[in-house]
Simulated assay, not measured.
Amino acid sequence: MPAFDASSAFNAFNASDRPTLLLTGGSGVLGRALIEELAPGFRIVCLRHRTGVADPRVEEVPADLTQPRLGLSPSDLARLTADVDLVVHSAAATNWKAAPEAIWRANLDGTAAVLDLAARAEAPVYHVSTAFVANPLAPEEQRRFPGAAAYLASKTAAEQAVREAAVPTAILRPSVVMGDSRTGRIAGAQGLTRALGAIVKGQVPVLPGAPDARIDMVPQDVVARAVGELLRAGATGGEYWLTAGTQALSQGEVVDVCLEFAEGYGPRPHPPRLIPLESVHRLLLPLIEGPSFPESLRRRFHTYAELLLVFQRALPFDSSLGAPHCGTTVSRDDLRQALVRNLAAWSAGPGGLRRAPRASYGASSARRLAS
């Protein structure tokens, strides 16, 4: 499929007449970062479902991914068809507690509707998928975790629909999107953020997975910068892995960072015991699913098991970061620093530690971040 020359189109516009970019998922973690990255060069129109963006740089249009033609009014559909120059499809159903059929509707039918609108507008589509399509669940995992299974399968099917689209496309595969690498702030608490917070609080006695399993996380601004460069270069027809790759932290390293961070606020929590995945399936999950196990602990561990089964990986992902027009690479030290800043932002917010770090922690923490 020939590449859409967005770079020529982009340069043809001046600051007062910018190309129009249709963005879905603008209120999400990555969507907010994309607005920061793209607002200077594009006129952004966001499709809004439940949560508005409330950003003066953005025009919002009511829509619904699960409805025919995105639930757009005839006038909005006609206007977008006439005005849109390119599309970034970042919206997805990511709540694994939702019914599997609802996840499929949003992720596959929604993508098909976005592609149909793009075809009407003759606009290229940049589809935000997930690197974890490379982590298919085993049949036993699919039975125990139907939400995660539906998410991964629907994202895989959506990618195929994108490849078969009538317009130029690019598939973007970020891994876990963390908060900002400089401030640590994130638009909303994600499941993995809550799991890391529970480790800091010493509330996690066991975790599924080996210490050397990789947990691939990339800060939101790093992902957004790569997407911005791809758009401005007009890169289509490719699949881009927006991941840490070989630099991803291991699960053992992530736990150590959490425990070191907790030490700044009080005694170091007891480290969680890391249990091999085969033992999780054969012994631990059947045990906690029994009637004698406390319901609150059962729910918590089930959530952590679901997250970590999807988000950990024995081998590193491929990574496109640092390739031409695809942002910059991240080092293991970059990721450790970003994780500490993410924990600091979490600790100051709802559900965090809600207390100041010990006075002696500031200098030692600064030294660790600088090293």
Rank of each mutant, 00 (worst) to 15 (best):
E101C: 02
A161R: 15
A9W: 12
L22N: 05
A158V: 11
A210P: 01
A82W: 06
L77R: 15
L72A: 03
L70M: 09
S296G: 10
N342V: 04
A78L: 04
Y265M: 03
V227G: 07
A150R: 08
K201V: 01
R273C: 11
E159I: 12
T156K: 15
L108I: 10
E278D: 14
E59M: 07
A82H: 14
I171C: 03
D221K: 05
L308D: 01
S371V: 12
H281N: 09
E36N: 14
P68R: 01
R163T: 13
C46S: 15
I186S: 08
Y361D: 14
S296E: 15
A161I: 00
I186H: 08
A150Y: 13
A161N: 04
P269I: 02
A63I: 06
L34A: 08
E101R: 13
V227W: 07
P68V: 00
H281V: 06
R143Q: 12
P286A: 11
P2K: 12
D216V: 05
D221F: 05
P276G: 09
A149D: 09
Q220Y: 00
Y126C: 03
Y265A: 02
S73M: 04
P40M: 03
G352S: 07
D221G: 06
G209C: 05
P267E: 14
A99Q: 15
G209H: 02
T94H: 08
S319C: 13
G202F: 02
S181Y: 03
A121S: 12
G202I: 02
T111W: 04
A344M: 04
P136R: 14
V223E: 01
A118W: 13
V222F: 00
R332I: 08
A148W: 12
R43C: 11
D55N: 11
D212E: 13
G188D: 09
F301A: 09
G322Y: 09
T66W: 00
L242E: 01
